[in-house]
Design a protein around this nucleic acid. Structure first.
Lengths: 137, 137
DNA sequence: AATGATTTGCAATATTGTTGCAATATTTTT
DNA sequence: AAAAATATTGCAACAATATTGCAAATCATT
């Protein structure tokens, strides 16, 4: 089973909660917020477990975080190529202002920028807001 | 007085709270979080007022928001060229992992990226984490 | 100075995030 | 396959953060 393989590969115990949450990510088109998961009708997992599962998944490189300006963090599945721990979000994230879904544009890499003297970059994030392909009428 | 001019230009009433908070932004090197303002020893403004002031400032184009992955939003002064409302963050933000200050790199523009067919960009944000010039060596 | 409009602070409430710990489930060892 | 060791879960309590209504205070306009 796909989910179990992902968990095992990450060195995590295979539990019901983790399989359920991972399933949600597989089934979801865009990124998910903590609230999306917690409020999802089909699951009945304690809030605390959701917090801890998301944190574990981030640390294991299964999902990554996407910063937003509305006091929530979004989470999305990582590509296989992602390495746990020292993870770099090198692809662009697109948030649709119409349907509100967040897409990982896996094929669009974050471009390098030339920083002023003395600034050393470690990680770069790029978030584009606009209208996604499904919402262009 | 500088502060009053900014407020008047934005069409806002000139109040003590607003002047104080604006002063903090002028005095601060980096961006500020709500908590930074609320906990600042020298001010004594109700939490609710801080929330409402920040929101008002964002809507008036006096400050802009910077998304982060730690469940806080940072706020920083806008350049004069910023227009209220339909505001575009077109400069890069730099968050130092050492001193934790956030700098607006006003001279570093967010580069254009080529999006997949059907995706229409409206606004783009770019956040670089790394070591700032004050924290090198 | 008086009026009207806006802003502030308080109180109450809602939402979101964290911690310790006992019970449960999973993995490993025998 | 059962026992021991390890890891995860859920509850409860708590802490921190955010929102709303409303009366009092402040600000802008006359």
């Amino acid at each position: 089973m796909q989910k179990e393989a992902v968990l095992k590969k990450a060195g995590l115990s295979v539990t019901e909660s983790r399989k359920t949450i991972l399933e949600l990510f597989f089934a979801s088109e865009g990124a998910l917020a903590h609230a999306d998961i917690e409020k999802h009708s089909s699951i009945n997992i304690d809030r605390v477990t959701v917090y801890r599962t998301l944190q574990t998944f981030v640390e294991s490189g299964i999902i990554h975080q996407i910063p937003t300006t509305d006091n929530t963090i979004l989470y999305a599945l990582c590509k296989d190529s992602c390495e746990a721990g020292h993870h770099q979000d090198e692809h662009v994230h697109f948030i649709c202002v119409s349907c509100n879904k967040t897409n990982c544009l896996d094929d669009v890499m974050v471009p390098m920028v030339k920083l002023p003297k003395g600034f050393l970059p470690i990680q770069t994030a790029m978030i584009v807001k606009g209208t996604c392909i499904d919402c262009r009428n």
